[in-house]
């Protein structure tokens, strides 16, 4: 089942065509990796999906509904979760409270003046934290966590509104190799068990080819290849523009 459908997306900055005519789909339960060398248009593409950049042309449809012109806030409300390249969490709150904030927002309780924030949805938050393996650290302030743990917290936060689509920008940047695999393993499990479509950008080819179900490759703003990891790895154009002459 197609969750996200991108058609003929294009964006130019000044005279530079950052993204041109990019189309792809992401299906439920599928991990799709978007790769490409620096300047290939990945970030622009990504930001057009989450409402930060308005495309010049093309369409972005989530479950048949256009995301264009929506704010990040509205997109989240539709059921799209996000993690950031540089983690963004609430440093003055505990791990549990970070997840509770997402749950409060999901249940539209943010404007309550009477409830106690720390007692709202605490069990739900713990359940989410258990899923990402952070239950034990629930009471620690986010400001003191290790980087890999912060990524997990972000994942738990992203899951709070039961998303059908998860957008992960460079999810493993800045992590040690073992942590990377653990995190992506986790993401893959969550995606498959919950039927969540996952779109992620990634630099680390090991991560991509180990965990992605499918891969799309951008170069110079264009989509040059798409398919199963093995097929993409074998694609001559990909090897040429992206992987250079070396082995994948």
């Amino acid at each position: 089942m197609t969750v996200l459908a991108i058609r003929n997306l294009a964006k130019a900055y000044g005279g530079v065509q950052a993204v041109r005519d990019v189309s792809f789909v992401v299906a439920a339960g599928e991990l799709l990796a978007m790769i490409g060398p620096n300047g290939a248009g990945k970030t622009t593409c990504f930001n057009m999906l989450n409402g930060q950049v308005t495309p010049d042309a093309g369409s972005v449809e989530f479950e048949g509904r256009s995301l264009l012109g929506l704010t990040p806030r509205q997109i989240w409300r539709l059921g799209v979760g996000r993690t950031f390249q540089i983690t963004a969490t609430f440093g003055s709150m505990t791990v549990r409270e970070n997840v509770q904030m997402a749950l409060l927002s999901h249940h539209r309780r943010l404007w309550s003046l009477t409830a106690l924030a720390t007692r709202s949805y605490a069990d739900d938050a713990d359940a989410l934290l258990a899923r990402v393996g952070m239950r034990e650290q629930a009471d620690r302030p986010c400001a003191v966590l290790a980087y890999g743990d912060l990524k997990r917290v972000e994942l738990a936060v992203a899951l709070a509104n039961r998303p059908r689509l998860l957008l992960m920008d460079e999810p493993t940047a800045g992590m040690a190799p073992r942590e990377r695999n653990e995190l992506m393993q986790l993401a893959a499990e969550l995606a498959r068990s919950g039927g969540i479509a996952v779109l992620f950008t990634e630099h680390d080819m090991d991560v991509v080819f180990t965990h992605a179900d499918r891969v799309i490759v951008l170069s110079g703003g264009e989509l040059i290849a798409a398919g199963r990891p093995d097929a993409v790895r074998a694609d001559a154009r990909v090897r040429e523009v992206y992987l250079g002459t070396g082995d994948a």
Binding site: R82, S92, M93, M101
Partner: peptide, 26 residues
């Protein structure tokens, strides 16, 4: 007391990370 309520927490969330706050619908 309001600072201990969800409203107060959302306020702090907006201060700590406007990016994240926006991304979770605040």
């Amino acid at each position: 007391r309001v600072l201990h309520a969800p409203f107060g927490y959302a306020l702090r969330a907006g201060r700590d990370s406007p990016l994240r706050a926006d991304a979770i619908g605040i």
